[in-house]
Design a protein around this nucleic acid. Sequence first.
RNA 1: GCCGAUAUAGCUCAGUGGUAGAGUAGCUGAUUCGUAAUCAGUUGGUCGUGGGUUCAAAUCCCACUAUCGGCUCCA
Length: 613
Amino acid sequence: MVNQPSVISESPDSQEKPAKIHLPRTSESETLKKIRHTTSHVMAMAVQKLFPKAQVTIGPWIENGFYYDFDSPEPFTEKDLKAIKKEMIKIINRKLPVIREEVSREEAERRIKTINEPYKLEILEGLQEPITIYHLGEQWWDLCAGPHVENTAELNPQAFELETVAGAYWRGDATKAQLQRIYGTAWENPEQLEEYKRRKEEALRRDHRKLGKELGLFIFTDDVGPGLPLWTPKGTILRSTLEDFLKQEQLKRGYLPVVTPHIARVDLFKTSGHWQKYKEDMFPMMADDEEAKAVEQGFVLKPMNCPFHIQIYKSELRSYRELPMRLAEFGTVYRYEQSGELGGLTRVRGFTVDDSHLFVTPEQLDAEFLNVVDLILSVFKSLQLKNFKARLSFRDPASDKYIGSDEAWETSQNAIRRAVETLGMNYFEGIGEAAFYGPKLDFIFQDALDREWQLGTVQVDYNLPERFELEYVAEDGSRKRPVMIHRAPFGSLERLIGILIEEYAGDFPLWLAPIQIRLLSVKDEFLPYIQNVVKELQVLGIRAEADTSGERLGKQIRNAETQKIPVMAIVGEKEVESNSLNIRTRASGELGALSVAEVIERMKQAIENYSDF
RNA sequence: GCCGAUAUAGCUCAGUGGUAGAGUAGCUGAUUCGUAAUCAGUUGGUCGUGGGUUCAAAUCCCACUAUCGGCUCCA
């Protein structure tokens, strides 16, 4: 197995093991909460036994397990994890009682001082009374709200695993101490643990970085640079199919296409506020010489498209009759993301936003916002994306990273709240998640490894119209200020494709598949026939190709399956004689012989309806 | 950016101080075959880059780059 190419693991046999075991998330199970809390305490006790200098900080449960952060002079290694696990099993087998004790703040403080753990003192400050301490036997205790199992004997030593070590900042603050975090998972029984591991492996198989390589969709090279994807022919088909799809939707809804350059004078971004607020996140300025650099006269790669679209709006005196004006562009932007943040297609330094800026009158704002949300939801529906959350991304009033007046923020945040309430959508609020120029409604998706990513976004903006002094002539002849809506249903093509690859596990619906149908011949003598049919299909815009490898049929089928091609057409003597194709699909297997005309008709229908063959 | 790990053939990986390997892909030949791997032969690597230690480095040390996991950040 080890020496096989990895695509092998995608074979039907390895996929047909439906999960029978239910794996609850921690928040759904009181039992798991107890198990994981106690297991994390056992781990902390083991760590302090083996590394007496390690200080315990916090160690909560998380949805799939738990972690504990330690301040340790030496970082933990994978080897240490094995030793820690061994020590944990010893502790479990000692059948230590887990005892809850309520103490006064003063008493807690006194006890912490005797064991000299300053982090605990800081934690204590933030705790409400009653303060509870949990003891593991007589040697170890920690501040904890619980709940816990009653005895370590209730933990199954075969049902937990220490997974990985990582750095983490104290209190999640990059200016504070770097701690060592150990992630682990714990379950009720070994069967659940096995199932959990199996699902993690399964998730790894869906990873878009792996599938992107196997299916030949995109590459990265060291010579081009980190976070800068290169799109291969197949990936480019996928991209442009998605682009065309959205362009059509937008044309139906009155959007106006525009194209703008990738660079602009730095002054443009001074007016917009980017230069002041996000200079560090932009690629460095290009200047002719040192003198130009000194006075900040030069060009920058655009991190956003809005200032460009604003220029087009401003290029003429606008009447209220022209509004809403919806300028749309697949605009490629460049952001100098921190090196440690880059990964696959979900976080890159150059990406294409399906961007549009809508210039509307204040009266039009609510209706237009609803139109945008409607577009976004219908796009997700066509893409069969169902698992997402809507987040109201508001500013953190305590932070100074935002531009604009308090009134402008209030007005736009209220507009967003009104919209989601009108639609009756489920949503949650993310304080501090706003863009620096305005609040957003974001659509959040999960990748194969349960990490969350923002795709679609709608933003209400009173600030940039102000900064660029945008106007329109109102009905009464007065000059008024429009409101802007920034919106991107995909968010970025790159991130969307990353999520789509994982959502479909590389098995794209027919309309998106880079190769829609591959023709296979039983014998080489039928190659001319299949090549003619391929031409016929291509003329009709169907993405068809012929397998000319001369391999046996079984191998040709296998190759088409591993490449996840949705439709295979097999040609032997019978098919040539009757001018037909013997169809086999990924979704439904063998469908038998159909006339070429019928195959064409069904392909066209399925592609048009976003459905299977 | 921070903590840790990793980097060997197009791909997936083995190789822990003594002449660089396997499977697969590619190429060549034979086979002309009916629904997930036909057989044989064969090309291919400054072992990420640059330094150092050593008689000798893929292997040990240092720096850098990239990737992976996590943290922080994310317009």
